[in-house]
């Protein structure tokens, strides 16, 4: 297993390089630059600006300069937020997104897994419909509807919590629920589907016929196989959750990183785009590695290849 992980980690380097290179050049071909503004700057000032940020050098030179800085751990200055570096922005905001992500993930798993499992065991019963139906809420009501609804209900109508902000512990509740419901829905549906696949497999029948208790069958055997699709889904999903959500952060005025992913592209903030992409890519690669390891653990028949 260690050889497997070591090899995968080694593979990360070329993958990251491809991502960085592609992003670096893609964003340069997009119309508009970091200094494109409604009130146009004069050509002289634009030249000064480009010189200031080294954008006047040949593209390949800029690319290698960027890679050089990257090796030293320097992601460069932000073009938009003039007195902040990309490193600072990420270190400031990532913890917020990580925290929100962790709470949301908790909501998603605590709701999704039981709902999906119960639905699968009591398949096609009223309980199944109830659980599945509840699981569907997160899919039917998109976050940009759910967020304001919760804010109106709990913030304005009941006045239990603030409608937005990120100060006290109570401020975590609404955003975590809003984001969590979406993923809970996916987890519930995928768990139900995965469990149904497994509950009819021979080895479950064998376990049952050997007189194992139903709970034991479910937890020891069925969940293992049944969670396979959930786990595959969760890899990229967790990367998405942990790096923040633009919609949630905007609705609840949360100083997280999700907004930077979206805004940096709109601002043509080249360095910030690259910085966030590198972060996300690293997470994706790492989590997909974790998924592959967990999949082998869940299914002992598999081997590390």
């Amino acid at each position: 297993m260690f050889r497997f992980i070591a090899r995968r980690l080694l593979e990360t380097i070329p993958v990251l390089l491809v991502i960085i290179t592609a992003t670096f050049f893609m964003i340069r071909f997009v119309p508009g630059g970091p200094f494109t503004a409604e009130k146009a700057v004069t050509p002289e000032i634009l030249r000064n600006l480009e010189a200031h940020y080294g954008l006047d050098q040949p593209l390949h030179r800029q690319y290698f300069n960027y890679l050089g800085d990257l090796l030293r751990g320097d992601l460069g200055p932000s073009f938009k937020y003039a007195n902040r570096t990309v490193n600072e922005i990420i270190f400031d905001k990532l913890p917020v997104s990580l925290e929100l992500g962790a709470w949301s993930l908790l909501v998603a798993l605590c709701l999704g897994l039981p709902l999906g499992t119960i639905a699968a065991i009591r398949r096609n019963s009223f309980l199944d419909y109830l659980c599945s139906g509840f699981g569907m809420v997160g899919i039917c009501i998109p976050t940009f509807v759910m967020g304001p609804l919760l804010a109106l209900l709990f913030g304005i109508h009941l006045q239990w919590v603030n409608v937005s902000g990120w100060y006290g512990p109570a401020d975590r509740i609404l955003p975590a629920l809003t984001l969590g419901f979406v993923y809970a829905a996916y987890v519930a549906r995928l768990t139900r589907g995965g469990m149904l696949e497994v509950l009819n497999q021979d080895y479950i029948r064998t376990a049952r016929s050997k007189g194992a208790s139903e709970l034991r069958v479910i937890f020891k055997h069925a969940l293992r196989g049944g969670l396979l699709p959930v786990v595959s889904f969760l890899g990229p999903a967790i990367a998405g959750i942990l790096t923040g959500s633009f919609v949630i952060e905007t609705i609840f005025q949360i100083p997280g990183l999700g907004r930077e992913f979206v805004q940096s592209a709109f601002n043509r903030d080249y360095t910030l785009v690259l910085g966030t992409v590198i972060l996300y890519a690293t997470l994706i690669i790492f989590l997909n590695l974790v998924v592959d390891v967990v999949q082998v653990w869940l299914n002992p028949k598999l081997k590390f290849e």
Binding site: A22, M26, P236, A239, A265, V277, I284
Partner: peptide
């Protein structure tokens, strides 16, 4: 291995920029 690393790359590329470029 190769196929899945390609998937990783596709996941990570910035979607907004990708779409704008497609339109260009």
């Amino acid at each position: 291995s190769v196929m899945m690393r390609i998937v990783d790359i596709m996941y990570a590329l910035p979607f907004t920029i990708f779409v704008i470029l497609l339109m260009v």
